[in-house]
């Protein structure tokens, strides 16, 4: 796979600028619920974008914005949904935790442990119809201790379904460190229990991760059976905006943010390799920020849903 380094960099900065635009809606109560951001986990979004086709399915989590962008969900409609507007992807009914884009086979769930079963259904449908697509079920490290993780990997394996289980291991289930609730040293090694090969990759190395994830998807797409891939990363913000986050030491956070920022890591690599310079990369950063700020300004003038429509869409109208 030939990767374009500046494109990888640009994708990551656009994702982060998108998430930073979201952050602005919290203190203003434009986003009036909780908001979970993925800042620090951009490389995973890039890996998804490279490996997947428009027909593949992704079922994501409460921390889903990068996955949606990677799947091609229009950023403008996604941002408007997060900002609870009528122009949003789901007309403001879903909000930031529940974006649905059937045209791009993207969905998410706010319930930890609930993404893999839905992805399994897509995988089953692809196999039933003989289609060359894969379904990616994304979960965090916390969800891997839910019964569905076992149930779904078992079913995917025994029926040989094109399911890719992508684990974003950001090391904390809200406040609980993984080592306190998980007995194995990696999560991916559990794949062996289902007769599958699991792999743990550094989720902040954008090139390595992109290549590894693409290889995994390729194997599953070609009939090689389900895959389990664990990407290690670190959650830069609290579990949600407003989380006091007293469960992680300040010093730990400072150190991890320095060590595990996929964007600054890659910036250093590009400069060291002579594939970019500080000025050029800063211009890419500025361009991404300007794009997302302009989008934010537009979204802010979009209307909220009309209250008279609060009961719309409970059931679909049916022609009889």
């Amino acid at each position: 796979m030939k990767l374009n380094p500046l494109n990888l960099y640009r994708m990551m900065t656009r994702m982060r600028a998108f998430e930073e635009a979201c952050l602005e809606g919290v203190p203003t109560f434009e986003i009036h619920g909780e908001l979970h951001t993925s800042i620090g986990q951009e490389a995973i979004g890039v890996a998804l974008a490279h490996a997947l086709t428009p027909e593949d399915a992704v079922v994501s989590t409460h921390r889903n914005h990068y996955h949606a962008l990677a799947k091609g969900v229009p950023p403008r409609a996604l941002l408007a949904e997060i900002f609870e507007r009528e122009t949003g992807l789901c007309r403001g009914r879903g909000g930031h935790m529940h974006p649905f884009d059937p045209d791009r086979h993207f969905s998410a769930t706010g319930i930890v442990g609930a993404s893999l079963p839905v992805a399994l259904g897509y995988a089953y449908a692809f196999k039933l119809r003989g289609l060359p697509h894969v379904a990616v079920g994304i979960c965090g490290d916390g969800a891997t201790n839910h019964g569905t993780f076992h149930e779904c990997l078992n079913m995917a394996a025994v029926w040989d379904l094109p399911l890719v289980c992508l684990i974003e291991n950001n090391q904390y289930a809200i406040s609980v460190p993984i080592g306190e609730v998980t007995a194995t040293s990696t999560i991916s090694e559990r794949a062996a229990a289902y007769g599958l090969a699991g792999e743990t990759v550094v989720g902040t190395d954008v090139e390595g991760l992109t290549e590894a994830f693409a290889a995994t998807v390729r194997k599953t797409r070609k009939g090689g059976g389900p895959s389990v891939i664990e990407a290690t990363c670190y959650r830069f913000r609290g579990h949600y905006e407003g989380d006091h986050d007293g469960y992680r030491d300040r010093s730990e956070k400072k150190r991890k943010r320095a060590e595990m920022d996929p964007i600054s890591r890659y910036r250093d690599i590009l400069i060291a390799r002579g594939e970019g310079d500080a000025e050029g990369l800063a211009a890419i950063d500025a361009e991404a920020r300007a794009e997302m700020q302009a989008m934010l300004a537009e979204v802010r003038s979009d209307p909220q849903p009309d209250p008279s429509g609060a009961l719309d869409h409970i059931f679909l109208e049916e022609a009889r």
Partner: peptide
């Protein structure tokens, strides 16, 4: 839990 969710995914997949 998982095969019910699988039904949800199947319905979303057509």
């Amino acid at each position: 839990m998982s095969f019910t969710g699988m039904g949800v995914g199947m319905a979303m997949a057509g």
